[in-house]
Structures are given as structure tokens and as C-alpha cells.
Simulated assay, not measured.
Amino acid sequence: MDRITVTVVGGGFAGLTAAITAAEAGAEVTVREAHHTLGGRARTAEGQYRTNEGPHAIYSGGPHWTWLKQRGLLGPLAPLPPREVLRMRFHRGGALRRTPPLALLRLGRHKAEQAPVDQDFLTWATGLVGEEGARAAAHYAAVALFHHDPGSLSAAFVQERFRRASALPPEAHYPRGGWGALIERMAGRAWDLGVRIETSTRVTELPAPGSPLIVATSLDAARHLLRDETLTWTGGRTTLVDLALTTRPGDPFVVSDLDAPGWIERFTAQDPTVAPPGQQLIQGQIPIAPHESKADGLARAEHLLDAGFPGWRDRTVWRRASVAANRTGAVDLPGTTWRDRPAIDRGNGVYLAGDQVAAPGVLSEVSFNSAMEAVTLALTSSRLEVAR
């Protein structure tokens, strides 16, 4: 029997997951990536400041954690020293505080399954902990949402992310050296399996019908490639801020804004290798509304920096900022779930994978789950078994 051939468009986390999975099942796989390097949104910047596109972490409660670990791809993780956990600060009522409001702890006891799909989070949570506590919880959950108004989203959707982002011990873990190191290991695994990887190769036309095609790109790129205007879903806009500061004892690990959505994190707290010695790498994400600008997000970021990192302006040795629009995963409005997002199976042997399609999970877990499902569907007719 001839080997089935699979083409994967996109060499990010979803694309490499799909390529490895299909190759392990015996398929002949080609990955085509438009950029000159692999990684997509999981790409880590080259140079002395190893930044990602916003805060990146692997949640140990997700299915991709086990999959990566079984294949030896998880690699060394950057542990968070216990003392750094104590340096988490909460911006509430215009002041920096050491402890979260009691409402966050109370709300964390409710499972996501107890939250309604068809009601917004703010209304549901207000009934449990009051409006002030509900708003604080919604803003805290923004670290896993990248959305300017988390309270307006489906209660079930937000509560799952709130619980996992606030879990103790923390679910979030950090690949040492940034996500780029993880991508390199995944690419190495793909090469070892015989996957053909073509970078700087932009696909603008669909190949002739026949062998399966897995489109593992952003939803915007997939919409243009497939010429399918139905490939849309609600996302968010976020001002991303990267700073390198000279080291100062006592800097906080995290500043979580509970007055408005916003998150500032000192990534060198857990991984000193992402910045030169004597410097701290600070990364933040400040969600902004459709009518707001990058400058609006920067102003709020600077307000948090003023509160948490005294003298940061004089200590800054490197700085950059950008806006990420619809590049940080799907968000579900009241009355919708992941099942309502664009389907993975597009017909005629074409399948979607990524973080805005119909697959469950939090953040990168959606990309992983959709990639696994896309490969399973693609190989069903060939009776190749997908290893999970």
C-alpha cells in the first residue's frame, strides 16, 4: 500500500504537532512555512532578549503536556523560585497590594461546569461574589484571554480560564530559553521522522484535490487561502510591551491589574537566560478595545510599571511595543462554545488547525487538540493509527 501524503501549511505549534503526529502514523509529510523560521506565534526572538509574542506558558493540566513529555520534547523547564511567588502584586483600587481580594478565592472554588454558557461572566459572578469581586476576577482572567472586556464573555468560557490561571500550585510552566527552544525540539523530532520542512515558502493556491491538506495558520490567513469568508471568530486586541531593565532587588514577579485587564510579568524571575546578566526582562499585555490605540495600552502599562517597578524609566536599556489583533486565540461570547467556532473539517480533504477553531482547551491547548483532530480525520480513510 502506498504511503499517504499529507501537506501541512504553517510551521507553528499546531503545524508541527500535526506533522509529527501524521509522520508517526506512517504518513509522508511536508510542512510549508511562509516565514524563514519555524514557530509562528510560538516563535522566540533571536538575540540577547529572548522574547515571545506576549506571555507564553505551558499549562501542565493540558493534553499537550503529556504528549510532549512522552516524546522527550518538553525539555528543561524554568522553575519559579518559591520566594518569587510571594512577589506577586495585585493592582486594586489604584494601589499595589500583596494579597488578592477574598472574592477571587471564593470564585475559584466554582468549577467551570457550574458556570452557564449563555450568560456573561460578570452577571454570573456578581451573583456569587458581588460586582466588585466579579470585575476583579474578570480582569485577573485577562492573562489567559487577551480581551479588553472579559466580563462580557461567556461565563463558562471565562471561568475555566480563571480557575486554571489561579490554580495552586500554578499550572503555568516556562520552557527554558523561551518557546523557541520547544519549537526547535519539535522540528528536530519532525526531521528525525522524515518530515520535509520548507521555510520561506508561502502557499497562495490550494493544491489539486487528492492528498490531505492541513491548514495550520491564523484564521485570517486560512480565510484568504481557502477563499472562505465564513472563517471568522471573535478575538481580542492587545498592546504587547517588552522591556529590559537593570536589575533591582525587590522587583515584583507579577503585577496583575484588577482595576482593568492588564498583566506585567518579570520573565527573568524564573528564567535568567532570557536576558543578559544584570538585566531583567519584563513582558506585559494590556488588552485594548476596538476604538483604543497602542498608545492607550502603553499608558496603562506605564501606570502599572510606575506602581510596581520604581525608577523603571531610568533603568530601561531596551524597549519595544506592538499591537496583536486577533492573534491571541478565540474568545467565546455568551451562548457560544468552542463547538461553534469554524469546523476543523472543511471538506475535500482540507482541515484546519489553530487556536481559533472548533477544539477545546486553553491557549495553546486549542492548537494542539485541533492539530490532533485534523490528523485523525485526514488519516481515517487510510486506516493509519494516530499515536496520542
Rank of each mutant, 00 (worst) to 15 (best):
P82G: 07
R83F: 11
E84F: 05
E84K: 07
V85S: 06
V85K: 02
L86E: 05
M88L: 13
M88Q: 13
M88F: 09
M88E: 14
R89L: 06
F90R: 09
H91L: 14
R92H: 14
G93M: 15
G93P: 12
G93L: 12
G94S: 09
R97Q: 13
P101F: 01
P101K: 01
L102G: 12
L102I: 13
A103I: 06
L105H: 04
G108D: 12
R109Y: 15
H110K: 14
H110E: 08
H110M: 12
H110V: 14
K111M: 10
K111N: 12
Q114E: 15
Q114I: 02
A115H: 02
V117K: 02
V117F: 03
D118W: 03
D118S: 10
Q119F: 04
Q119E: 15
Q119V: 14
D120E: 10
L122W: 01
L122E: 06
T123P: 07
T123I: 00
T123L: 07
T123K: 02
T123Y: 02
W124R: 01
A125Y: 01
T126C: 12
G127I: 04
L128H: 05
V129Q: 03
G130S: 08
G130R: 03
E131P: 01
E132Y: 08
E132G: 14
G133A: 12
G133F: 04
G133P: 05
A134N: 06
R135I: 02
A137R: 04
A138S: 10
A138V: 07
A138W: 02
H139Q: 06
A141L: 08
A142H: 07
V143A: 14
V143R: 10
A144M: 11
F146M: 09
F146A: 13
F146T: 07
F146S: 11
H147A: 00
H148Y: 15
H148D: 13
D149F: 00
D149Q: 08
P150M: 04
P150L: 04
P150C: 04
G151H: 03
G151D: 02
G151K: 01
S152T: 06
L153G: 03
L153M: 05
S154H: 01
A155P: 00
A156P: 00
F157Q: 01
E160L: 12
E160H: 08
R163D: 13
R164M: 11
R164T: 12
R164I: 08
A165T: 11
S166A: 10
A167R: 11
P169F: 06
P169I: 10
E171W: 02
R176K: 10
W179I: 06
G180Y: 03
G180W: 02
A181L: 07
L182N: 02
L182K: 01
I183A: 05
E184T: 15
R185N: 06
M186K: 14
A187K: 11
A187R: 13
A187F: 09
G188M: 00
R189D: 05
A190K: 11
D192N: 12
G194K: 13
R196N: 12
R196C: 09
I197W: 09
E198R: 10
T199H: 12
S200C: 06
S200K: 09
T201P: 07
T201N: 10
R202H: 10
R202M: 10
R202I: 09
T204C: 11
T204V: 15
